[in-house]
Computed example of a mutant assay.
Amino acid sequence: MTSTIETSDGGYRFMPGVSQYSCGVSALPGFAIERVRFAEPVPLSAGFERIAQILKAAGRPLTAFGACELRSPAPFTEDGFRAFNEIYIKTLIAWGVMRDGVNPVARSNVCPKLDPPAEPSFHAFCYTVPAAKDAPSSFVVAGSGESVEGKANYRDHTVALGDSSPAGILAKAIFVLGEMERRMNAFGGTWKDTTAVQLYTVHDVYPVLESELGRRGVLRNGLTWHFDRPPVVGLDFEMDCRRVHCERVV
């Protein structure tokens, strides 16, 4: 099992990823993860302010912020994505969430093809709250597309680059599903433990729904398919998943 790192003041542990986000988070004993979805996307700066207000109202420190789901106007170039991430992590550093270049917050950032926001915005976020010692476990796995993260670029490490044929989508799906399983495994989780699974693509995935997702048990509680693109030009297939028992819309 991949090693994880505890954030004692956040109430969760995380699987290290890259500087802009971790691979996932899981609540520590005595805590549970809750998810809040915004009824409409909230621009980044205003979204951080609303998140801070919600955490304060819940009696939780800013360090309880553990995961978020973003929506952006269109896929970024690789340089544009790096520039965006530099802006995003400034708040995490100011909040004391990100320390010494290590980012514990899991993240998905996707681009709706239909009715996209005018600027990068928050769709949802997760945070920890105190819970009974015997409360069911909870985790959030960050989004992953069909490319190896942490390399010099995405393009040279993307599965079936530019290929949205059934064979290309199959190859992409196999890679992403494997990455979801690797990340869940860090928290002792499998598909049967998930309460929600999200898929982000604008391509036809019907050929892989049964053969790959169904066969692995991904569809046991349904699938939320967002008609969205991954955040970087050249990526076509992204997923994330979670085990969260309390969710609300504000």
Rank of each mutant, 00 (worst) to 15 (best):
P61S: 02
C126Q: 13
L223A: 09
D100L: 10
G11H: 04
R229E: 10
G17R: 08
R183T: 03
K90E: 15
N109G: 12
P120Q: 02
F48K: 03
P75R: 01
T7M: 13
H245L: 11
K90M: 12
E78Y: 09
A152F: 07
F125K: 00
A52F: 02
T194D: 05
V197K: 01
E181S: 08
S137K: 15
F122V: 02
A186S: 13
A171Q: 12
E78P: 13
A46H: 08
N85I: 05
A196R: 11
Q53P: 11
H123L: 10
V159D: 02
E69K: 15
E49L: 07
K56Q: 15
S211C: 08
A74L: 03
A131P: 04
S165T: 14
S211Q: 06
P117I: 00
S138E: 00
T195Q: 04
H123E: 11
Y12G: 08
D163P: 06
P120G: 01
E247G: 09
S138D: 06
F122S: 01
C23M: 14
D100T: 07
V218Q: 07
E247T: 12
C241N: 08
E6L: 12
L44A: 08
G66A: 15
T2D: 15
H226P: 07
F38T: 02
V205Y: 03
Y206K: 15
L177F: 05
D228A: 06
E212S: 06
W95T: 12
L55R: 03
V249L: 13
T7Y: 04
A196V: 14
R13L: 03
Y88K: 11
R82T: 12
G234V: 07
K113P: 02
E179P: 00
F84L: 08
S3F: 10
A32L: 01
R183K: 14
M180A: 10
R60F: 01
L170I: 04
